[in-house]
Write a protein that binds this DNA or RNA. Structure first.
Lengths: 229, 229
DNA sequence: ACCTGAACACCGTTCAAGT
DNA sequence: ACCTGAACACCGTTCAAGT
């Protein structure tokens, strides 16, 4: 959001940066830091350049533009998902670990997740993770087509959950938000929303631990996916 | 994304709009049309004003700013989810219908979904839908806490699925994208991604029907959620 | 090849003014 | 009360120029 006018008279006129101060890796590192610390709103070519100590246009020697950086950030983060060591004895447990790894990555880098969902797929995301999930699903006994569908369902549930919880987290950052949400829930007209009104205590406590909620749902989803094989 | 310089010498100087041409409803209608037709990138106060035939600042008499409009849009769409008539005999089937209604809404208004996931929750979204889901889950025999968790899981899966499919849809809009994706899949090194490489035909066909994929996963998730009650 | 400032066409929003 | 234009502080990116 734009900022109200202010008197910032003159910025110090940057001295020329030495050659090769910049490279794609350094740029992506800075981008991720910026994104994690200040969120997508603050992720600006100008802010990125300032962090790197160069003029905004210097970045364009290494990336075609902001979109390309966004894609590269998403790509890079996806490649850092920690995969459990393959033991092979319990593919279902291993599968659960992979999903948790993806969920953890997304909640640790909420703005990367936002980026990922905002930009269109190039179809080559997270190949290592996907391959591992497919291997494990096949090891669990799923037929070929079902394994593919199951992996998509797991990713969808994971992305949705991460998004849900970062959205909540962001909302709860505001001062007194928790109290206001609580009050709003309690003020619900019971004749219009009977189920909602009667479940207020459960709703309140379910919202408090996003990770526990994710695991609860994951276990049920896995049960549904692997049932009867 | 900014547009390269062009020579658009002078825009016709708008004549003053009559009083009360604007009201919140008209503004939201225009916003939704704009969003559905041109996407979030094109959703601009200035574009919105032009669509309404007023000066940009006229809108600020009815909303505090763009964020408030975004929230109102999301709110309004969520309220239009079609709920099935309550018959009560088969709460599980009804539950399925509610989920499909939410999914349909999101895929029909992709940019509204994007809005919803981008802005923090105010906690009062979709109260009618949530109340209905909770009622049905309780009718299916779930204990109170489980009903709450199950409703969250269903929403998370649904949001994640809708996001996934709109992301794909957007990517596929580009010329020849389908062919390129196919080629990329086939070019995967089998020694590095054995499972992926061996499942190429299944991957290709799974990506073609997003709605079928959603229903497949939904049925498994519901099975897992309602198992053993 | 890589980095620079100035300029362009946008953006949301403040302000003071019209009706 | 509701609508207006002008102006401000941003934004991504093009351009032509420096080293």
């Amino acid at each position: 959001m734009p900022v109200p006018p202010s008197a910032q008279p003159l910025r110090t006129p940057r001295r020329r940066a030495p050659r090769n101060t910049l490279n794609p890796d350094r740029i992506l590192d800075a981008a991720i830091t910026l994104l994690d610390r200040d969120g997508t709103e603050a992720f600006t070519m100008r802010a990125l350049a300032e962090r790197l100590g160069v003029a905004p246009m210097a970045i364009y020697s290494h990336f075609r533009g902001k979109d390309e950086i966004s894609d590269a950030v998403a790509q890079r983060l996806l490649d850092t998902v920690e995969l459990p060591g393959a033991c092979g004895a319990h593919p279902d447990r291993e599968l659960r670990e992979v999903c948790l790894g993806v969920y953890r990555l997304f909640t640790e880098h909420p703005s990367a997740l936002q980026l990922l969902t905002t930009r269109p797929t190039r179809g080559d995301d997270a190949l290592a993770v996907i391959d591992r999930m497919l291997t494990l699903l096949r090891a669990c006994g799923l037929p070929r087509q079902d394994a593919v569908r199951a992996h998509v369902a797991l990713m969808q549930y994971t992305v949705g959950s991460a998004l849900w919880s970062t959205r909540r987290t962001r909302a709860m950052c505001e001062e007194g938000a928790r109290e206001r949400a609580k009050a709003k829930l309690r003020a619900l007209p019971p004749e219009r929303y009977p189920a909602l009104a009667s479940l207020v205590p459960e709703l309140l406590c379910a919202q408090d631990d996003a990770a526990a909620q994710y695991e609860w749902g994951l276990d049920r989803l896995l049960r549904g996916l692997l049932a009867g094989v």
